[in-house]
Amino acid sequence: MKIFCSKDSLISGVNAVQRAVSVKNTLPVLSGILISAEKQSLRFAATDLELGIRCEIPAQIEEEGTIVVPAKLFAEVVRKLPDTMITIKEENLAITIYYYQSEITLRGYDPEEYPLLPDLIDPMSYTIPTLIFKNMIRQTIFSCAVEENRPVFNGTLMQIEGSNLRLVATDTHRLAYSISEVENPKNASFNGIIPAKTLAEIYRLLKDEDESIQISFNKTQVVFQFGLIYLVSRLIDGMFPNYKQVIPQTCETKINLSVKNFLEAVERASLLSHDKSGANIIRIKVESTQLKIDQTTELGKISEQIEVTTQGNDVMIAFNAKFLIDALKVIDTDQIIFELSGPYSPGVMRPLDNPNYLYLVLPVRIS
Rank of each mutant, 00 (worst) to 15 (best):
F262G: 01
R150G: 06
R234I: 08
L175W: 10
L272S: 05
Q221Y: 02
D332F: 01
A59T: 05
S189G: 12
N191A: 09
S102E: 11
S22D: 05
K2M: 06
M85K: 12
F190A: 15
Y230E: 09
Y177I: 01
G162I: 03
T84M: 09
E201Q: 11
D314F: 06
T250Y: 13
C5I: 15
A145L: 06
N154V: 00
H274Y: 13
F133L: 15
I325R: 08
P248E: 10
N280Q: 13
N218F: 12
I3R: 05
S288Q: 13
M349G: 01
P70A: 03
P185N: 09
Y99L: 07
I137E: 04
F224W: 07
L231P: 03
Q139C: 02
L117V: 03
I132S: 13
F74D: 04
D122S: 15
C251F: 14
G278M: 12
V246W: 11
N184K: 07
T289M: 09
S125I: 04
I3E: 06
N313I: 10
Q221M: 09
I229D: 02
V77M: 07
S9A: 15
R19E: 09
V259L: 02
T310E: 01
E252Q: 13
K285M: 06
R283Y: 08
L206D: 01
R43A: 13
I160V: 15
P28C: 11
F74Y: 04
Q221A: 03
S258N: 14
D110K: 07
S288N: 14
S9V: 02
F262C: 04
K186Q: 14
I284H: 02
G192T: 03
K72H: 12
K89E: 15
K186C: 07
I104D: 06
I331L: 13
T333H: 15
K292N: 11
I179L: 14
V146M: 02
K7L: 00
Y177T: 00
D275L: 02
R268D: 06
D334W: 08
I132H: 12
P123V: 11
I282Y: 04
N261F: 05
Q214Y: 02
V266Q: 01
D294V: 14
S277P: 08
N256I: 04
I160F: 08
A327V: 03
L42N: 01
E112C: 04
A318C: 10
R150H: 13
S178C: 10
I194G: 12
I141M: 05
H173N: 13
K197D: 08
A37Y: 09
V232R: 00
K244D: 12
N135P: 06
I194V: 15
M349E: 00
D353A: 11
I213N: 02
I67L: 14
V152E: 15
P151V: 07
L231E: 02
V266N: 01
V246Y: 14
I53R: 02
A145K: 05
L299F: 15
K254G: 00
R54C: 10
Y114L: 11
A71F: 10
T309H: 12
F153I: 08
D210G: 02
P241S: 08
V68F: 10
Q249H: 14
F323A: 03
M158K: 10
M136P: 10
